[in-house]
Design a protein around this nucleic acid. Structure first.
Lengths: 354, 354
DNA sequence: CTGAAAGCGCTTACAG
DNA sequence: CTGAAAGCGCTTACAG
């Protein structure tokens, strides 16, 4: 009676339950439920009547009640790094698209430092079917929460982040990326290399440093001699300005390198401008290689040579990894996939100046 | 007993209910519930015991069961346009951050064309406390679903999209933005203007066109005479290339404009490059103004003058609008807020060439 | 602190 | 097709 009252006194109130809705249509609750769940054996007229009322009233059955009965939520929790770089955004968008086409929706939460455990807990309380992580968290942030997922065999996939023991992971082969860049630059005659933003100091850069070393050694060059870094003299507050500052520093350096590898495209473009401001020319005096192959590579003149992360391949691997766990027995060993990068050559690189 | 079996035979299975959890801790279900809900009158030892077990087992109480009891879900549904431009991403990130700090989480869904009604329905079935829309949908996409929200008084806020009757809205004053740009350029001596990507053809650009007209008329200039567009001769597949193509076209035009207003920063930067390729100089021969004031404005040389959307102000208005509806009686009239843009002058604009 | 009970809204199996 | 009933996991008011 409370219900009838509220429905009558305010005709604009939304119907809140199948009971109210069934009364509205003049059918039994169970019949309505059967129509909503597309069960067979119903008269066409009944189905039609329910669907019309559904459109008219805008009634949405309470998902929590259905989920309480233990069905799959068909929902994925997505943790993204709170600093949304273009590659992260792209992965997020592609992941959501791919999962939606498979009938899953995504709850996206940004992980600010210190929040990962509560975010994971929130996802678990919503009984998501799986959890995806996007982006590299250098504070070692999500490890604790992830350990729990691994321990209990909760479906999950970690993109970009590496070094998480026993987690299902898909990562770009950053070491290989650096080797490819070195191969290419050595082929152009370069023998002295500058790193911009790629520092030993950062744990996340370990793989890239390794790749640079390995690439150089294969060409008989000694990393300790031919690689220079000036990062330590410049704070990295904002990427573009940081790249420009490091480049101006390099420009003034006697015997400066002729080829530069930057941590990302923004730093690389900042560096290009820093070099030009200092009277050097790109690529005639110095070559610059970015990382990520973002749209922004086309903004400077000349356009920026960069390394492509192959984001489509990464996301599609991640989706496979997730789906292979949902509703299936736990895999015996963690699933690990590595993605091969691609070097995209544009105008910012050329033969070494003699 | 089924429960005990599963718990015992597989010690790694996650506990699924407060009943299982209470048995695990050796307390009554109601006691556990009281601890979880921080109710008063519990012994410190009991609280401590429950919290330790919570950490050890990683138990997460089923949120659907709690939500079924009709409490606020403290969740906001966020609809974003599926094409994630930097301003949209920024709004999304700021909105989520602001809502989280107020105890709400966000479910983000990208609206592909034709999906808006089902996405809204999904949000409603999850009993979200409100729904936010981010981005301009030129197909008139979300109108139908929004009409339902308006009709039933469901808390909502629409950012960017305008022309939705009776919806609670916060929009940038795009007309004012164009007036500001015209004022500034006329002050620099410009008398002939080119529009790049701002076309009458697009409904969403109506306000900008109005602003350009109004600005010119105030300076005694006739829009029909002093404004030129070449958009119709170039398909807009990709913004940067589109801007470059239109600029090359303008460069070859006798009596070409000296100042250009672009739809967005990417188009503007493409245009700068198109002009330079055609032998013109920015800003000595032509001035270019972008829109959005994205980070990318700093990438070209000279840097791009642009119009800032004041995204922080927009989002904070949107949050106010949302919170003012949640748990409160329906406002008598739709809430409409307008945000004042800011012109950010950089190197791409200068005095008109004589 | 315990324990039994009610009720949130749904689905489903059952008898009619 | 109807109608009554059970059960999902939680919270809360109640008697002990």
């Amino acid at each position: 009676m409370k219900r009838e009252l509220s429905t009558k006194s305010n005709p604009k109130a939304r119907l809140r339950s199948t009971a109210e809705f069934a009364r509205h249509v003049g059918l039994a609750r169970s019949t309505v439920s059967r129509v909503l769940n597309r069960q067979p054996g119903l008269r066409a007229g009944t189905i039609e009547k329910v669907e019309r009322a559904l459109r008219e009233t805008g009634f949405a059955p309470n998902a929590h009640a259905r989920l309480l009965r233990g069905e799959h939520s068909h929902t994925i929790g997505v943790c993204v790094k709170d600093f949304l770089t273009p590659p992260i955004v792209r992965k997020m968008a592609l992941l959501q698209q791919a999962m939606r086409s498979r009938g899953f929706s995504c709850i996206i939460e940004m992980l600010e430092p210190g929040t990962s455990e509560s975010v994971i807990q929130h996802f678990l309380s919503l009984r998501v079917d799986g959890i995806a992580f996007i982006g590299y968290y250098d504070q070692g942030e999500p490890e604790v929460g992830l350990a729990g997922l691994v321990h209990f065999g909760t479906p999950h996939v970690v993109m970009d982040q590496f070094g998480v023991p026993d987690a299902n992971t898909v990562t770009l082969d950053r070491s290989r990326a650096m080797e490819m860049a070195i191969d290419y630059l050595v082929g152009l005659g370069h023998r002295r290399f500058g790193l911009i933003g790629i520092s030993q100091r950062m744990l996340g850069e370990f793989d890239r440093i390794t790749g640079v070393r390995r690439g150089l050694q294969r060409h008989g060059l000694d990393p300790a001699v031919v690689v220079t870094s000036r990062d330590q003299y410049h704070p990295r507050i904002e990427d573009y300005a940081f790249g420009a500052a490091v480049a101006r520093d390099f420009a003034a350096l006697p015997g400066r390198p002729t080829a530069y590898l930057a941590l990302n495209d923004d730093i690389a473009i900042g560096a290009m401008h820093g070099f030009v401001e200092s009277g050097l020319q790109v690529p005639d005096s110095v070559s610059v290689v970015g990382f990520n192959n973002q749209d922004v590579c086309r903004m400077p003149n000349p356009e920026l040579t960069s390394i492509d992360q192959q984001i489509e391949a990464t996301v599609s691997s991640a989706v496979d990894i997730l789906l292979s766990q949902i509703g299936k027995p736990r895999p015996a060993a963690p699933i690990i996939r590595t993605i091969e990068p691609v070097l995209v050559v544009r105008g910012s690189t050329g033969p070494a100046a003699r």
